[in-house]
Amino acid sequence: MSIDVKFFASLREHVGTDSVTIDAGRVRTIHDCWQLATQSADLPDNTLCAINMQYAKLDAAVEDGAEVAFFPPVTGG
């Protein structure tokens, strides 16, 4: 009953870690994951999120065993 939460780029520096495992029973949405994994740190306005490698919105539901990621706007290419 756990969810892996990952942080990338400036978001990793913002929260001070690259990943946290949280109790799936204590969260319902991606936003809940942020709150629990970061101990309610400020969430930057332009933050992007993904569930299992697919873009998702903050209010998207999260299942047990999911991988949730938070990151800033992308700058590849």
Binding site: F8, A9, S10, A50, Y55, A69, F71, P72, V74, T75, G76, G77
Partner: peptide, 9 residues
């Protein structure tokens, strides 16, 4: 790729 792929410089 520029707008969606998760790369950061």
């Amino acid at each position: 790729l520029k707008s969606q792929a998760p790369f950061w410089k």
